[in-house]
């Protein structure tokens, strides 16, 4: 995660700035939501996390409309033939650093829809996923936990890369 902004700055200072950048990133995850073929069950639970009972804004989470403004792509559903292209495009539109959280069983394996003719695969087949949240649908607490897992992972260093998925991205599977 090299930042172009930090080029040409002394080492020590750069370390400190990196820390600040990391801090800000952990405390300000903005989400963009993409439904690539879900049953809406997961989507309404994601929305529920923003409502007063769970209020994700407490942690700095904001739901954004444009992928350009977002840090985290929160995906639901298996990937349908038609949605695949759009999912890729949305992911590509996001500025780096960017992360992906896949919510729901069907985003992990295809779930209930496994084997249906219009499903090309799960989210991980199309874009690299950082955190999976299982459940059909997962409870709002579980979704929040997923986001927290992502942040914890960030604190521990660079997010895990999925090189194969990167290759697939290029190859367009």
């Amino acid at each position: 995660m090299a930042q172009s902004t930090l080029k040409g700055i002394p080492r020590a200072l750069r370390g400190a700035l990196d820390k600040v950048a990391l801090w800000s990133r952990i405390n300000s995850p903005w989400l963009v939501h993409f439904n690539s073929g879900s049953c809406n069950g997961c989507d309404i639970e994601i929305l529920a996390t923003l409502a007063p009972r769970y209020d994700l804004e407490r942690f700095g989470v904001k739901l954004q409309g444009s992928p350009r403004h977002a840090d985290v792509l929160i995906c639901t559903g298996p990937v349908t033939r038609l949605a695949r292209e759009r999912l890729l495009r949305t992911y590509e539109q996001m500025p780096v650093p960017k992360f992906v959280v896949a919510v729901g069983s069907c985003s992990i394996t295809g779930g209930a829809f496994h084997g249906c003719y219009n499903i090309v695969g799960d989210i991980g087949d199309v874009i690299p996923v950082d955190v999976y949240v299982p459940g059909c649908p997962p409870r709002p607490e579980a979704i929040i936990d997923g986001v927290v897992q992502l942040l914890t992972k960030l604190k521990g260093g660079a997010p895990a890369k999925a090189p194969e998925a990167d290759a697939r991205l290029g190859g367009g599977s």
Binding site: A112, F113, P137
Partner: peptide, 29 residues
């Protein structure tokens, strides 16, 4: 068509009981 999954065909490959589970997931609302 973005969330078209092919459930009607999928139902033909599942047992009568299994389909309750599938039909429930046509729509989560």
């Amino acid at each position: 068509g973005y969330v078209h999954r092919g459930i009607e065909k999928g139902a033909e490959d599942r047992s009568w009981v299994h389909n309750i589970y599938l039909m429930e997931r046509i729509c989560g609302i």
